[in-house]
């Protein structure tokens, strides 16, 4: 076992391998933004408190700001830049646009990544469930009702049943 302050790591992002030399202290978030130029993933708090940097690692939604890039050699990483379908908006992005589920747009990549995972997890069963399972992504513009509507719509489009008549919190 060898400890290294710096190393060469292969990051597989959106299906593409990137070999970068990095310091062990570099987070995945800074590696994506500063080294790979993938600035769609945003830094909101850099402390695990806002969800703006949500990406998928191994198909699970995680926070890039709380992940050391060096630990992800050979992991599958997906970011907002990989969410397009045939060069256009994917079904979740389309639902966000149609429901006006964002304003300033800064938290939006994280919201979309979280929504995609939430639907795959099977947590879009009702408006209440969506509210709870989208609560790791703060939207200071507070497009929350529209986000819930967009996630429900996208889940429906992706073949999930959603009960939207359930009472609010």
């Amino acid at each position: 076992m060898r400890f290294d302050e710096e190393s060469e790591v292969t990051l597989r992002v959106n299906g593409e391998d990137h070999v970068i030399h990095l310091e062990s202290r570099m987070t995945l978030l800074d590696a994506l933004r500063d080294r790979l130029g993938l600035t769609g993933t945003k830094k909101g708090c850099d402390g695990g408190e806002c969800g703006a940097c949500t990406v998928h690692v191994g198909g699970r939604r995680v926070l890039a700001c709380m992940t050391l890039a060096v630990s992800l050699a050979d992991a599958d990483i997906a970011t907002i830049e990989g969410m397009a379908v045939d060069g256009g908006l994917g079904p979740i992005q389309r639902a966000f646009l149609d429901n006006d589920a964002f304003q300033c747009g800064y938290c939006t990549p994280g919201q979309v990544m979280s929504a995609a995972a939430l639907i795959a997890e099977g947590h879009a069963g009702s408006a209440r469930e969506i509210r709870e399972w989208m609560s790791g992504n703060i939207c200071r513009c507070a497009a929350y009702p529209q986000i819930v509507a967009a996630v429900a719509e996208a889940a429906g489009a992706l073949g999930r049943t959603v009960n939207v008549t359930e009472p609010a919190p």
């Binding site: 993938l38 646009l97 964002f102 747009g105 939006t108 979309v112």
Partner: peptide, 23 residues
């Protein structure tokens, strides 16, 4: 419900939804 509300979808929406909008 929202589909019933008139008004233009955000022209900058695609940029914000794909991470292409530069802050």
């Amino acid at each position: 419900m929202i589909a019933a509300i008139g008004g233009l979808r955000r022209p900058d929406g695609a940029a914000k939804l794909t991470g292409a909008a530069d802050y």
